[in-house]
Structure formats: C-alpha cells, structure tokens
Computed example of a mutant assay.
Amino acid sequence: MKRSNAPIFWGLFGAGGMLAALFGPVLVFITGIAVPLGLLLPADAMSWPRMHAFAQHWAGKGFLFAIVALFLWHAAHRIYHSLHDLGVHAGAGTRLTCYGAAMLGTLLAAGALLAIGF
C-alpha cells in the first residue's frame, strides 16, 4: 500500500489555522488599529529600528517565520480544497500551484529573515 503525504499538508493546515485563529485578530488589531491610532501602545512601538531589532533577534525570526509560513500553508490547503468545492478538478497542476506557492513563499520568508542578519 502506497504511503500518503496528506498528513503533512493537513498538519501544516491545522497549525496555520490555529495560529490564524489565535494571532490573526491580534496582529490586525495591533498593526491596523492600536498603533496607528495610538491606543494602548506608544506611537513609536512599530518604528523601523524596533521592528528591525525584533526581526534580527532569534526569537523574533522564529515568530515571524512561523506566522508567515504557516499562514501560507493554511491558505494553500484551504484554496486547494475550495477549488474542488467549486468544481475545479484538483489534479497535479492545481496541487503544484497551491502548494508550490506556499513553498516559494516559505523559502522567500526564510531567505529574507536570514538576509536581515542576527
């Protein structure tokens, strides 16, 4: 019996969905409402030097990578299965497009975070 790689994609989908549910609304609130309007946080909370320092720290890199990569994999899996619901045949090309875009985005995020330095 041939082994399936579906558990890998379902695991990434689940992890991305959990992060999207827990951190997505908070990120939208902080970056879209709280900081621009000066609520709860100082005006320079998301200034370039602070965000650059956050992205250079190993924990910041890990957080940013996890958020970007897992959100991408969650979206790719959801789009792939939504296309099936819309009647688009989910063949190898569709699978390659969806998951390939998530892989490319993950690699670009890793490259960008490594290019920032430590």
Rank of each mutant, 00 (worst) to 15 (best):
A112G: 13
G24L: 09
L19I: 08
L96I: 08
W58N: 05
D44V: 06
A115H: 04
F65Y: 11
V35N: 07
R95F: 13
A115F: 04
T106G: 04
C98R: 00
L108F: 10
L107V: 12
P7Q: 09
A92Q: 12
L40A: 14
G93C: 06
A66H: 04
T106M: 09
Y80S: 07
V35C: 10
P42W: 04
L39T: 03
G17W: 01
G32Q: 05
A34N: 07
A15E: 01
H89Q: 11
Y99V: 04
G87R: 01
M51V: 15
G62T: 04
G17F: 02
L114T: 03
M18N: 08
H77D: 13
L107S: 04
G60C: 06
V68A: 15
F9H: 15
K61T: 07
A112V: 11
S82C: 07
A15Q: 01
L27S: 02
A115K: 03
F13G: 01
F9R: 14
K2Y: 15
A69V: 13
A69C: 13
A92N: 11
A55Y: 12
D85E: 05
D44L: 11
L72R: 03
A6N: 11
L83M: 11
W58Q: 09
A53C: 08
A21Y: 06
W48R: 15
M46T: 06
A110R: 00
K2D: 15
F13T: 05
W58V: 13
A101E: 00
A6W: 13
L22R: 01
L83D: 00
W10D: 15
W48S: 14
V88A: 09
F71Q: 04
A21V: 12
R50G: 12
R95G: 03
F54A: 14
L39M: 14
G62C: 06
A59V: 14
P7E: 09
M46G: 06
G91T: 02
P25C: 06
L41V: 10
A92Y: 09
G62E: 02
L41Y: 10
M1S: 13
A20Y: 07
R78L: 15
L96K: 05
L27H: 00
A92D: 13
